[in-house]
């Protein structure tokens, strides 16, 4: 076998189609599975979640390729993943409904000095955590807050009544229930 043949090996047309089909199926499965897991943003992820994703990637490797070790096969699988990811991102950007379903929505916790207790208990945020978030933004009492929002990535943003610009980032992971 000459050098070029060894570098540019590729599967048959059927083989490439099979790899593409399997990869698409795996990608859809991964999205559904991760949605069921409940967490949607990296900010919410712990070390365990990262390990899970790395292991997932390895677990599905042979299912995607089915022992296809060719350069062409790998590139077909990579192309299918990139394309599908692009499609998901475009749909997320176009449709607010799909975005809300796949990414969750930000939740208002404090509005014009009033604590929205119902939203807080639904999201599992305690009053101590709320006060900690306010203090982080240099605010002493809820009365000074225009709005406080639990973002989809699990952080809390605070907009004071007199707009000043102060921001620290801290994750309240594990607080949001799936």
């Amino acid at each position: 076998m000459n050098l070029l043949e060894r570098i540019f090996d590729y599967p048959s047309a059927t083989g490439a189609l099979i790899v593409a089909g399997k990869t698409a199926a795996i990608y859809v499965f991964l999205i559904v599975g991760l949605r069921l897991l409940g967490k949607r943003e990296l900010g919410q992820m712990s070390l365990h979640d990262v390990v899970l994703i790395v292991v997932l990637g390895n677990a599905v490797q042979n299912a995607m390729l089915g022992g296809d070790n060719t350069l062409g096969g790998g590139l077909v699988a990579a192309g299918v993943l990139l394309l599908l990811n692009r499609v998901v991102n475009v749909v997320l950007a176009r449709s607010r409904r799909v975005e809300r379903f796949l990414s969750g929505e930000p939740v208002l916790i404090v509005h014009d000095g009033h604590v929205l207790r119902g939203a807080m208990s639904r999201e599992g945020v305690t009053i101590e955590q709320l006060h900690a978030a306010l203090r982080e933004h240099g605010i002493a009492s809820v009365g000074e807050v225009h709005m406080c929002v639990l973002e989809v990535d699990g952080t809390m943003s605070v907009v004071p009544r007199q707009a000043s610009v102060l921001k620290t980032r801290r994750h309240y992971r594990g607080l949001r229930l799936p």
């Binding site: 990869t23 795996i26 990608y27 991964l30 999205i31 991760l34 897991l37 967490k39 949607r40 943003e41 990296l42 992820m45 979640d49 994703i53 790395v54 997932l56 990637g57 390895n58 599905v60 490797q61 995607m64 390729l65 296809d68 070790n69 060719t70 350069l71 062409g72 096969g73 790998g74 590139l75 699988a77 990579a78 993943l81 990139l82 599908l84 990811n85 998901v88 991102n89 796949l102 990414s103």
Partner: peptide, 19 residues
């Protein structure tokens, strides 16, 4: 980056591994 993008990247790196 959402968790879906991360999963895509992980799957991507594995997809090209054998290549």
């Amino acid at each position: 980056l959402t968790i879906y993008d991360l999963a895509m990247i992980m799957a991507l790196s594995n997809a090209v591994q054998n290549a």
